[in-house]
Design a protein around this nucleic acid. Structure first.
Lengths: 192, 192
DNA sequence: GGGCCATGTCATCAGTTGGTGACTTCTAGG
DNA sequence: CCTAGAAGTCACCAACTGATGACATGGCCC
C-alpha cells in the first residue's frame, strides 16, 4: 500500500466520463439499448450510477454520446478501393465478432428496435455511414449503391447476431465470405 | 339494446385465444418483444391481461406461439423459380411495409435483441426459413446460398425498419429493387 | 333447478428501471 | 489552516413490468 489509497474513486471528472463512455459502448454493443441498465454500465465503469445522469443527463443522452464517439465507416473507405469487398466480407463473415470494428453495427442493430434509441441511430448512421459512403462511391446512383452495400453488411451482421457462428462451418464461411466480397465489389464498382 | 348485452366479454375460449394471438402478432411485429407489454396486447384484444398468463403461460410462451402461427417463407417458394428475385425484391423495396408478408421478418428483427425472444427466434427461423429455403435451393452449397439470400433479405428489411422510406425516392427504390432482384436470383440460380 | 367447471375480472405483488436530491469527502486556492 | 466548490456516495422515489391468486359469473349437464 505504498500510495495512500483513497477509499473512494479517484476524483477525476474526465477519466470518469471516459470510463462511463467506454463501458456504455461495450454494453450497448453486446446487449442493446433496452437490455442495458444504467446500473450495469456504472458497475462496469466502477462508478456510481448517479454519475451517469450527472455527466450525461440520462441514459438516452449517453447513448447519443456513445454513437458520436464510436468508430465509423471511415476505416474501410481509407484502404484500397479494389479490396473493399474482400476486407469488409472478411470482417462480416470470418473475423471474430468481438472486434471493435463491429461495435457500431452491433449497437445499431441491437438497439434499433428501441424508440428511444432509434432517432439517434437514424441521425448518426446517416452522418457517419451513408453520407461518407455515398461520397466515396460517387456517381449518379451512389445513394442506391450505398443502400445496397448497407443491406448486405447489415444483413450479414444480423445473421451472425442471431446465429452467432452456428450452422456454418469454416469452409462454408469461407465460401460465404467470397460470395459476399463479389457482391459488395459489384455494388462498389459499377452502376447497378 | 335488442340483444341482451352481456356486460363482460363473451365467454368463448377459442375466440379469446385467437384474439390474443392476433393482437400479439401485430404488436410484436410493430414494436418488438421488449417494447410490447402484456397489458397492451390484452387491451388490443379486448381482453384482461391475466388471461394471457392463463392461456399461454406467460409472455415468452405467447411469443413462441406467435412465431409458430406466423406465415413463413413458403409463400415465396411456391411461385415460379425464375421470378423469385423479382417477387422478393418487390416486397423488400417497393411494397408497403404494412403487408403481412413482412410480419415474420419484422418480428424477428425487432425482437432479436431480446434474450428472452432470441432462442425462440433462432429455433423458429431455422425451421420455418432456412430449412425450407435450403431444400428448395438444393445443391452442395445450399446452406451458403440460403445464408446469402437471408443476408440480403434481412438487411433490406432492416434498412426499411431503420429509415422507413426516407432517403430514397420512388425512382431510386425501383433501381434498388432491380439490383436486389439480380443479386437474389444470382444466389438462387448458381453455385456461388 | 342445482351443482360445477370453464371463463372472465380485479386487486395486488415483487422486481426492475431510470432518475433525483441531500449528504459526505476530497482538493484547490487564498 | 480554512473555506468553497467540485466529485463522489447514498437512500429513495415513481413508474412500469409480468405474474398470481382470490373472487365473480356465465353456461352446460345431470
Amino acid at each position: 500500500m505504498s500510495p495512500p489509497m483513497t477509499p473512494g474513486r479517484a476524483r477525476n471528472a474526465a477519466a470518469t466520463r471516459t470510463a462511463i463512455l467506454e463501458a456504455a459502448r461495450k454494453r450497448f454493443a453486446h446487449e442493446g439499448y433496452d437490455q442495458t441498465g444504467v446500473r450495469e454500465i456504472a458497475s462496469d465503469a466502477g462508478v456510481d450510477a448517479a454519475l451517469i445522469s450527472r455527466y450525461f443527463g440520462g441514459k438516452e443522452e449517453l447513448f447519443s454520446e456513445v454513437l458520436s464517439c464510436a468508430p465509423n465507416i471511415a476505416e474501410f473507405l481509407d484502404g484500397d478501393r479494389d479490396s473493399f469487398g474482400e476486407r469488409v466480407a472478411q470482417m462480416l463473415a470470418v473475423e471474430p465478432m468481438r472486434e471493435e470494428k463491429f461495435e457500431l453495427f452491433l449497437i445499431m442493430l441491437r438497439s434499433a428496435s428501441s424508440p428511444k434509441a432509434a432517432e439517434a441511430i437514424r441521425r448518426h448512421s446517416h452522418d457517419a455511414f451513408y453520407q461518407p459512403l455515398e461520397t466515396w462511391l460517387g456517381g449518379d446512383d451512389a445513394a442506391v449503391r450505398a443502400r445496397l452495400l448497407s443491406c448486405v453488411m447489415m444483413g450479414a451482421t444480423m445473421n451472425r447476431v442471431i446465429y452467432e457462428d452456428y450452422l456454418l462451418d469454416g469452409q462454408q464461411r469461407q465460401e460465404l465470405c467470397e460470395a459476399l466480397a463479389r457482391t459488395l465489389d459489384n455494388y462498389v464498382s459499377g452502376p447497378v
